[in-house]
């Protein structure tokens, strides 16, 4: 099975080398593609110097566009599955093979989930996760235990949709929309690391905005969108 590991990277000069080295070591059987999203730091220089497989956006287009570029590459090169793999070192490539075998079983979407066998901790962030989980259950009838996990693998059919559709960003509402459109999903237990370097964009204003967008999108707009 042809699997593409999509690594979106925006100003990840401190992380990218470690991430790609780990992937090459642990998943030599899969292809990877770094999408340098118009970074202003030395991300591109590192990619050139190390001879990484990468493409560069000439300007910063945002995470959604970076992942979509990866999906477009996967679609054009007829990959069987593509996984979004964060460039900041939070995801562990050890789980990619397990996720790929779930795709082989016939699932359209496989989510690397932190809470299949583990219990969800009680924190403000997990309250958000629970609310989104509830909204998704309300509209699709299915339970996605870790909706905010960014570690998602998609099969051929989904790759085509994600590559060509507008506004199907790497967010929980996209998964909800695809599932409502008939896609099947499976979750496998994974462990995620904290960011090693660089800073997260998560703050109160962003979080409130994010929750609002997810709710409006999942509960209201989904009924008008094409799945």
């Amino acid at each position: 099975m042809k699997v593409l590991i999509i690594i979106p990277a925006y100003n990840e000069g401190e992380n990218i080398e470690r991430v790609v080295t780990t992937i090459k070591e642990k998943c030599p059987q899969y292809d990877y593609l770094v999408i340098n999203d118009g970074s202003r730091d030395n991300t591109q220089d590192i990619c050139i110097k190390k001879g990484y497989h990468f493409v560069s956006h000439p300007v910063n287009l945002g995470l959604a566009a970076a992942v979509q570029t990866g999906m477009l590459f996967a679609y054009k090169n007829k990959y069987d599955a593509a996984i979004q793999f964060d460039g900041d070192g939070q995801h562990d490539p050890d789980y990619i093979a397990d996720m790929a075998s779930e795709i082989e079983k016939g699932y359209n979407i496989v989510v690397g989930s932190r809470f299949v066998t583990e219990k969800k901790p009680n924190s403000l962030r997990m309250l958000g996760s629970n609310l989104i989980q509830f909204a998704i259950r309300l509209t699709t009838g299915k339970t996605l235990k870790d909706p905010t996990s960014g570690m998602r693998m998609f099969d051929k059919k989904m790759i085509k949709k994600l590559a060509l559709a507008a506004d199907l960003g790497p967010e929980p509402d996209t998964v909800a929309l695809l599932v409502r459109g008939g896609a099947t999903f499976s979750e496998i237990q994974v462990e995620m690391h904290d960011r090693v370097a660089g800073e997260s964009y998560l703050n109160l204003a962003n979080s409130v905005n994010y929750m609002l967008r997810m709710f409006v999108s999942i509960l209201i707009l989904q009924w008008f969108r094409k799945g």
Partner: peptide, 11 residues
Amino acid sequence: IKKSQFKIGDT
């Protein structure tokens, strides 16, 4: 939204 001419955030 139906025609995908609007972004979710903008709505």
